[in-house]
C-alpha cells in the first residue's frame, strides 16, 4: 500500500433523489482503482460516463454512497480529515472563469494558503514560486479577467500549486482553451510530473493528451471499462469507437493501413513515432523493389 496515492475501493455513487423523483441511477457503480504515487493517469469517457463524478470523490467534494476512497492513507468519509485531504489533492476545473476568486492575480493564487492559515511570509514565498512555475510571475498584479483563457487556467493551476499538493486532479482543463493555451497547460502538467514528482490525474477528451500519460482509464456508464498503458488502450480502436471515443489520428492511420494489408505497427502515439515506423516500412519496400 505504501506506493499507492489513492485507493478507490468498490465505490458506488448516486445523487439522492428529491421527493417524488424516481429511484436514482448509479452515476458510479462498483468502481475500483489504485493510483500509484508519482504516476500520470488519464481518464477518458464520453460525457456523462461518470469521470467528473469520480474526480470529485478524490478530494472529498463528494463522498461515496458505497465503498470507500482512501487518499494518502486518509478515508475521505472522515470529516476531520477533509482539509488535510484537500491540501494534498488539488483540483483544476474546466472553466477558468469560474474558479478564480480574486480581481488580482497574486491574491487569487494566495487564496488556498490563506485558507490553510499559513504565515504571511511563507504565503508570499509560495505565491511567487507557483506563479514562476506557470510562467506568469510578471502578471502578478494584473486583473485575471483581462487575461486570455490559457493564462487564466495557468493562474488556476498556480493557485493549486501554492498548496504544495502531492496529487493534482485536472478535470478537462483544456476543453475551453485554444491550441496555444492547451499546449501551455500540457507543458505544465508534464513538468509537474517529471520535475515535482506529483501524481497527476487528467480527465480529458483529447486523445493526444491522454497519449502522454503512463496509464489510461476508460469509463462508460459509471464503470471502468478499460485500464492499461496508452499503447494497449489506443490500439483497441473498434472498442473505443463503440464507446463514442476516438483514437489519436496517428493510430487511426496505422489501423486503416493494417486493414488494407499493410504490415505496420498499430501503436504510434506521436507524429514522430508514426513517421518513423512508416518510413522504415516503405523504405524497406523501396529497397526490396530496387533490389
Amino acid at each position: 500500500m505504501e506506493n499507492i496515492a489513492i485507493n478507490i475501493d468498490n465505490v458506488t455513487f448516486f445523487y439522492t433523489p428529491e421527493d417524488g423523483e424516481e429511484a436514482p441511477r448509479d452515476v458510479l457503480s462498483n468502481v475500483s482503482l489504485k493510483i500509484e504515487k508519482g504516476s500520470f493517469v488519464a481518464v477518458l469517457g464520453h460525457n456523462g460516463s461518470g469521470k467528473s463524478t469520480l474526480a470529485r470523490h478524490l478530494n472529498a467534494l463528494l463522498l461515496p454512497k458505497g465503498g470507500s476512497v482512501t487518499v494518502f492513507g486518509m478515508d475521505t468519509r472522515d470529516e476531520a480529515l477533509t482539509l488535510e485531504i484537500r491540501r494534498r489533492v488539488g483540483m483544476v476545473f474546466q472553466n477558468p472563469d469560474n474558479q478564480i476568486v480574486s480581481n488580482v492575480v497574486e491574491e487569487d493564487v494566495a487564496f488556498a494558503p490563506e485558507n490553510l492559515g499559513i504565515p504571511t511570509p511563507e504565503i508570499r514565498k509560495r505565491v511567487d514560486e507557483a506563479l514562476r512555475a506557470v510562467g506568469l510571475y510578471e502578471f502578478r498584479a494584473h486583473a485575471p479577467h483581462l487575461l486570455s483563457g490559457g493564462q487564466k487556467q495557468r493562474i488556476a493551476i498556480a493557485g493549486v500549486l501554492a498548496m504544495r499538493p502531492k496529487c493534482v486532479v485536472f478535470d478537462e482543463p483544456t476543453a475551453m482553451l485554444d491550441p496555444r493555451g492547451r499546449r501551455d497547460v500540457m507543458d505544465i502538467i508534464e513538468r509537474m510530473k517529471n520535475g515535482l514528482g506529483s501524481t497527476v490525474i487528467l480527465i480529458t477528451h483529447h486523445m493526444e493528451e491522454a497519449a502522454q500519460a503512463d496509464r489510461v482509464v476508460v469509463m462508460s456508464d459509471g464503470k471502468v471499462v478499460m485500464d492499461g498503458a496508452p499503447r494497449q488502450i489506443f490500439t483497441r480502436v473498434r472498442e473505443l469507437e463503440d464507446l463514442g471515443l476516438t483514437v489519436p489520428g496517428t493510430v487511426k492511420l496505422m489501423w486503416e493501413l493494417r486493414n488494407r494489408g499493410v504490415d505496420v505497427p498499430l501503436a504510434a502515439l506521436t507524429a514522430d513515432e508514426c513517421a518513423g515506423a512508416l518510413a522504415e516500412h516503405f523504405k524497406a519496400n523501396n529497397r526490396a523493389t530496387s533490389a
Binding site: 467534494l61 484537500r86 488539488g90 487564496f111 488556498a112 494558503p113 485558507n115 492559515g117 504565515p119 504565503i123
Partner: peptide
C-alpha cells in the same frame, strides 16, 4: 471548497 475554504476561522493573509 476544493481550495480548502472553510470560513474565516484561522485564515491568514498574503
Amino acid at each position: 471548497e476544493a481550495r480548502c475554504y472553510h470560513g474565516g476561522e484561522g485564515r491568514t493573509r498574503l
